[in-house]
Protein backbone atom coordinates (compact mmCIF):
# COMPACT_ATOMS: atom_id res chain seq x y z
CA UNK A 1 0.00 0.00 0.00
CA UNK A 2 1.35 3.33 -0.94
CA UNK A 3 -0.52 6.39 0.09
CA UNK A 4 0.51 9.88 -0.69
CA UNK A 5 -0.93 12.68 1.31
CA UNK A 6 -3.19 15.01 -0.47
CA UNK A 7 -3.23 18.25 1.43
CA UNK A 8 -6.71 19.24 0.33
CA UNK A 9 -8.97 19.52 3.37
CA UNK A 10 -11.43 16.81 2.28
CA UNK A 11 -8.78 14.23 1.69
CA UNK A 12 -7.08 15.01 4.96
CA UNK A 13 -9.63 13.36 7.18
CA UNK A 14 -9.58 10.13 5.17
CA UNK A 15 -5.87 9.56 5.24
CA UNK A 16 -5.32 9.08 8.92
CA UNK A 17 -1.69 8.18 8.39
CA UNK A 18 0.70 7.43 5.63
CA UNK A 19 3.30 4.80 5.31
CA UNK A 20 5.01 3.19 2.38
CA UNK A 21 4.75 -0.11 4.15
CA UNK A 22 1.21 -0.73 5.25
CA UNK A 23 1.62 -4.22 6.65
CA UNK A 24 5.07 -4.12 8.23
CA UNK A 25 6.11 -3.25 11.74
CA UNK A 26 6.47 0.39 12.58
CA UNK A 27 9.22 1.76 14.74
CA UNK A 28 7.47 5.02 15.38
CA UNK A 29 4.25 6.63 14.22
CA UNK A 30 3.22 10.25 14.21
CA UNK A 31 -0.51 10.90 14.26
CA UNK A 32 -1.82 14.34 13.45
CA UNK A 33 1.30 15.76 14.98
CA UNK A 34 1.65 19.56 14.95
CA UNK A 35 4.47 21.53 16.48
CA UNK A 36 4.26 25.10 17.67
CA UNK A 37 6.96 27.45 18.81
CA UNK A 38 4.90 29.94 20.77
CA UNK A 39 2.14 30.99 18.39
CA UNK A 40 4.03 30.00 15.29
CA UNK A 41 3.07 26.66 13.84
CA UNK A 42 6.27 25.05 12.59
CA UNK A 43 4.79 21.79 11.35
CA UNK A 44 1.15 20.89 10.88
CA UNK A 45 -0.71 17.58 10.90
CA UNK A 46 2.03 15.11 10.22
CA UNK A 47 0.84 11.53 9.81
CA UNK A 48 3.80 9.30 9.30
CA UNK A 49 4.52 5.68 10.17
CA UNK A 50 8.18 4.82 10.02
CA UNK A 51 8.97 1.15 9.28
CA UNK A 52 11.34 -0.74 11.55
CA UNK A 53 14.92 -1.63 10.70
CA UNK A 54 14.98 0.52 7.61
CA UNK A 55 16.51 3.83 6.75
CA UNK A 56 13.97 6.56 6.32
CA UNK A 57 15.13 9.86 4.90
CA UNK A 58 13.40 13.16 5.50
CA UNK A 59 14.03 15.70 2.76
CA UNK A 60 12.65 19.10 1.90
CA UNK A 61 13.56 22.74 1.46
CA UNK A 62 15.04 24.82 4.27
CA UNK A 63 12.61 25.75 7.01
CA UNK A 64 10.13 22.99 6.21
CA UNK A 65 10.43 21.53 9.69
CA UNK A 66 12.52 18.45 8.94
CA UNK A 67 14.65 18.78 12.03
CA UNK A 68 11.66 19.81 14.13
CA UNK A 69 9.85 16.61 13.17
CA UNK A 70 12.95 14.53 13.89
CA UNK A 71 13.35 16.10 17.32
CA UNK A 72 9.74 15.31 18.14
CA UNK A 73 10.50 11.62 17.84
CA UNK A 74 12.62 11.60 21.00
CA UNK A 75 11.22 14.61 22.79
CA UNK A 76 14.29 16.74 22.21
CA UNK A 77 11.93 19.65 21.62
CA UNK A 78 11.10 19.51 25.32
CA UNK A 79 14.34 21.37 25.85
CA UNK A 80 12.95 24.37 24.00
CA UNK A 81 10.58 26.03 26.43
CA UNK A 82 8.34 27.63 23.82
CA UNK A 83 7.83 24.37 21.89
CA UNK A 84 4.45 22.65 22.12
CA UNK A 85 3.29 19.48 20.43
CA UNK A 86 -0.21 18.42 19.47
CA UNK A 87 -1.26 15.01 18.25
CA UNK A 88 0.44 11.76 19.11
CA UNK A 89 3.75 10.06 18.55
CA UNK A 90 3.41 6.33 19.08
CA UNK A 91 6.45 4.32 20.03
CA UNK A 92 5.72 0.65 20.65
CA UNK A 93 2.05 1.49 20.86
CA UNK A 94 2.47 4.19 23.47
CA UNK A 95 2.18 7.92 22.96
CA UNK A 96 5.55 9.28 24.06
CA UNK A 97 3.89 12.58 24.94
CA UNK A 98 1.61 10.98 27.54
CA UNK A 99 1.96 12.49 30.97
CA UNK A 100 3.24 9.29 32.54
CA UNK A 101 5.99 8.83 29.95
CA UNK A 102 9.48 9.77 31.10
CA UNK A 103 11.29 11.73 28.37
CA UNK A 104 14.62 10.53 29.74
CA UNK A 105 13.59 6.93 29.09
CA UNK A 106 12.30 7.85 25.62
CA UNK A 107 15.65 9.37 24.71
CA UNK A 108 17.51 6.33 25.93
CA UNK A 109 15.50 4.13 23.57
CA UNK A 110 15.54 6.62 20.72
CA UNK A 111 19.05 7.96 20.27
CA UNK A 112 20.23 10.93 18.33
CA UNK A 113 23.19 11.99 16.22
CA UNK A 114 23.53 15.69 15.54
CA UNK A 115 24.51 17.79 12.57
CA UNK A 116 27.76 18.92 14.08
CA UNK A 117 29.79 16.22 15.79
CA UNK A 118 29.54 16.96 19.49
CA UNK A 119 31.73 14.54 21.40
CA UNK A 120 32.06 15.22 25.11
CA UNK A 121 35.36 16.84 26.11
CA UNK A 122 36.40 13.54 27.60
CA UNK A 123 38.47 10.59 26.38
CA UNK A 124 37.36 8.48 23.43
CA UNK A 125 36.68 5.62 25.82
CA UNK A 126 34.67 7.76 28.20
CA UNK A 127 32.57 9.18 25.37
CA UNK A 128 31.31 5.70 24.54
CA UNK A 129 31.12 4.49 28.12
CA UNK A 130 29.34 7.50 29.58
CA UNK A 131 25.86 6.90 28.20
CA UNK A 132 25.80 3.29 29.33
CA UNK A 133 27.22 4.15 32.72
CA UNK A 134 24.44 6.60 33.53
CA UNK A 135 21.98 3.95 32.40
CA UNK A 136 23.33 1.50 34.95
CA UNK A 137 25.42 -0.74 32.69
CA UNK A 138 26.91 -3.53 34.78
CA UNK A 139 28.77 -5.67 32.26
CA UNK A 140 32.31 -5.62 30.89
CA UNK A 141 32.81 -1.97 29.98
CA UNK A 142 35.97 -2.53 27.91
CA UNK A 143 34.24 -5.13 25.81
CA UNK A 144 31.15 -2.95 25.39
CA UNK A 145 33.24 0.04 24.28
CA UNK A 146 35.10 -2.07 21.76
CA UNK A 147 31.88 -3.52 20.40
CA UNK A 148 30.30 -0.09 19.98
CA UNK A 149 33.41 1.31 18.31
CA UNK A 150 33.58 -1.68 15.98
CA UNK A 151 29.93 -1.24 15.05
CA UNK A 152 30.69 2.36 14.21
CA UNK A 153 33.67 1.26 12.05
CA UNK A 154 35.97 3.29 14.23
CA UNK A 155 37.78 0.69 16.34
CA UNK A 156 40.80 0.21 14.10
CA UNK A 157 41.44 3.95 13.97
CA UNK A 158 41.12 4.72 17.65
CA UNK A 159 42.08 1.53 19.48
CA UNK A 160 45.47 3.02 20.38
CA UNK A 161 44.08 6.34 21.52
CA UNK A 162 41.16 5.33 23.69
CA UNK A 163 42.52 7.39 26.57
CA UNK A 164 43.11 10.49 24.49
CA UNK A 165 40.66 13.34 24.18
CA UNK A 166 37.93 12.76 21.64
CA UNK A 167 38.42 16.31 20.44
CA UNK A 168 41.71 15.25 18.89
CA UNK A 169 39.93 13.08 16.32
CA UNK A 170 39.09 14.29 12.83
CA UNK A 171 35.60 15.58 12.08
CA UNK A 172 34.54 12.34 10.43
CA UNK A 173 35.96 10.26 13.26
CA UNK A 174 34.20 12.47 15.79
CA UNK A 175 30.89 11.94 14.03
CA UNK A 176 31.43 8.17 13.95
CA UNK A 177 32.31 8.37 17.64
CA UNK A 178 28.97 10.08 18.20
CA UNK A 179 27.29 7.23 16.35
CA UNK A 180 29.23 4.72 18.47
CA UNK A 181 28.12 6.60 21.56
CA UNK A 182 24.51 6.40 20.41
CA UNK A 183 24.81 2.70 19.57
CA UNK A 184 26.39 1.92 22.93
CA UNK A 185 23.18 2.50 24.87
CA UNK A 186 21.42 0.10 22.46
CA UNK A 187 18.51 2.24 21.37
CA UNK A 188 15.81 0.95 19.07
CA UNK A 189 15.79 3.98 16.83
CA UNK A 190 18.62 6.33 15.90
CA UNK A 191 17.67 9.78 14.70
CA UNK A 192 20.26 11.56 12.61
CA UNK A 193 20.04 15.26 11.89
CA UNK A 194 22.13 15.90 8.76
CA UNK A 195 24.91 13.74 10.19
CA UNK A 196 27.28 14.27 7.26
CA UNK A 197 26.60 17.87 6.31
CA UNK A 198 29.75 19.15 7.98
CA UNK A 199 32.00 16.44 6.55
CA UNK A 200 34.07 16.07 3.42
CA UNK A 201 32.87 13.65 0.69
CA UNK A 202 35.03 10.73 1.80
CA UNK A 203 34.02 11.01 5.45
CA UNK A 204 30.43 11.36 4.24
CA UNK A 205 30.62 8.10 2.32
CA UNK A 206 31.98 6.32 5.38
CA UNK A 207 29.08 7.61 7.47
CA UNK A 208 26.63 6.48 4.78
CA UNK A 209 28.15 2.99 4.62
CA UNK A 210 27.99 2.86 8.38
CA UNK A 211 24.33 3.83 8.37
CA UNK A 212 23.53 1.03 5.95
CA UNK A 213 25.40 -1.44 8.11
CA UNK A 214 23.73 -0.55 11.36
CA UNK A 215 20.28 -0.31 9.83
CA UNK A 216 20.07 -4.10 10.12
CA UNK A 217 19.84 -3.67 13.86
CA UNK A 218 18.37 -0.22 14.24
CA UNK A 219 15.69 1.88 12.67
CA UNK A 220 17.32 4.98 11.28
CA UNK A 221 15.57 8.22 10.50
CA UNK A 222 17.85 10.71 8.82
CA UNK A 223 17.24 14.32 7.93
CA UNK A 224 19.27 15.39 4.95
CA UNK A 225 19.35 18.33 2.61
CA UNK A 226 21.34 16.25 0.20
CA UNK A 227 18.94 14.50 -2.17
CA UNK A 228 21.62 12.26 -3.65
CA UNK A 229 22.37 11.08 -0.16
CA UNK A 230 18.72 10.30 0.49
CA UNK A 231 18.56 8.41 -2.80
CA UNK A 232 21.76 6.49 -2.07
CA UNK A 233 21.08 5.28 1.42
CA UNK A 234 17.42 5.33 2.33
CA UNK A 235 14.72 2.73 1.87
CA UNK A 236 11.95 5.26 2.32
CA UNK A 237 11.78 8.98 1.82
CA UNK A 238 9.47 11.54 3.33
CA UNK A 239 9.19 14.83 1.51
CA UNK A 240 8.24 17.89 3.53
CA UNK A 241 7.44 21.26 2.13
CA UNK A 242 6.59 24.62 3.52
CA UNK A 243 3.47 26.70 2.87
CA UNK A 244 3.21 30.47 2.62
CA UNK A 245 2.80 30.81 6.38
CA UNK A 246 6.13 29.05 6.78
CA UNK A 247 4.41 26.00 8.22
CA UNK A 248 5.88 22.66 7.26
CA UNK A 249 3.74 19.84 5.85
CA UNK A 250 4.39 16.25 4.96
CA UNK A 251 3.72 16.10 1.23
CA UNK A 252 4.61 12.57 0.37
CA UNK A 253 6.10 9.53 2.07
CA UNK A 254 6.94 6.50 0.00
CA UNK A 255 9.60 4.09 -1.20
CA UNK A 256 12.71 6.08 -1.97
CA UNK A 257 12.77 4.70 -5.49
CA UNK A 258 9.23 5.83 -6.15
CA UNK A 259 9.81 9.29 -4.71
CA UNK A 260 12.81 9.83 -6.92
CA UNK A 261 11.49 8.24 -10.10
CA UNK A 262 7.74 8.56 -10.04
CA UNK A 263 6.44 10.79 -7.25
CA UNK A 264 2.66 11.09 -6.93
CA UNK A 265 2.72 14.74 -6.01
CA UNK A 266 3.59 17.56 -8.34
CA UNK A 267 5.42 19.43 -5.56
CA UNK A 268 7.62 16.47 -4.81
CA UNK A 269 8.51 16.20 -8.47
CA UNK A 270 9.28 19.90 -8.66
CA UNK A 271 11.58 19.63 -5.69
CA UNK A 272 13.31 16.44 -6.84
CA UNK A 273 13.94 17.83 -10.28
CA UNK A 274 15.31 21.00 -8.80
CA UNK A 275 12.57 23.38 -9.79
CA UNK A 276 12.45 24.84 -6.28
CA UNK A 277 14.01 24.45 -2.86
Amino acid sequence: MSVAVDRSPQAQSETSRTSPNGTGRYAIEAEKMSVYYGDYCAVRDVDMSVPSNKITAIIGPSGCGKSTVLRCFNRMNDLITSARIEGEVLFQGQNIYDDEVDPVEVRRRIGMVFQKANPFPKTVYENVAWGTRINGFRGDMDEMVERALRSAALWEEVKDKLQQSALGLSGGQQQRLCIARAIAVEPEIILMDEPASALDPIATLRIEDLMKEISEKYTIIVVTHNMQQAARISDYTAFFSVDDRRTGNLIEFDDTEKIFTNPSQKRTEDYITGRFG
Binding site: N74, R107, G111, M112, F114, N118, F120, N135, C178
Partner: peptide, 11 residues
Protein backbone atom coordinates in the same frame (compact mmCIF):
# COMPACT_ATOMS: atom_id res chain seq x y z
CA UNK B 1 25.43 20.92 21.78
CA UNK B 2 27.07 19.11 24.71
CA UNK B 3 23.85 19.28 26.71
CA UNK B 4 21.88 17.99 23.74
CA UNK B 5 24.31 15.12 23.25
CA UNK B 6 23.89 14.22 26.89
CA UNK B 7 20.09 14.41 26.86
CA UNK B 8 20.11 12.44 23.62
CA UNK B 9 21.76 9.56 25.46
CA UNK B 10 18.99 9.50 28.03
CA UNK B 11 20.75 11.55 30.69
Amino acid sequence: SLRQASYGLGA
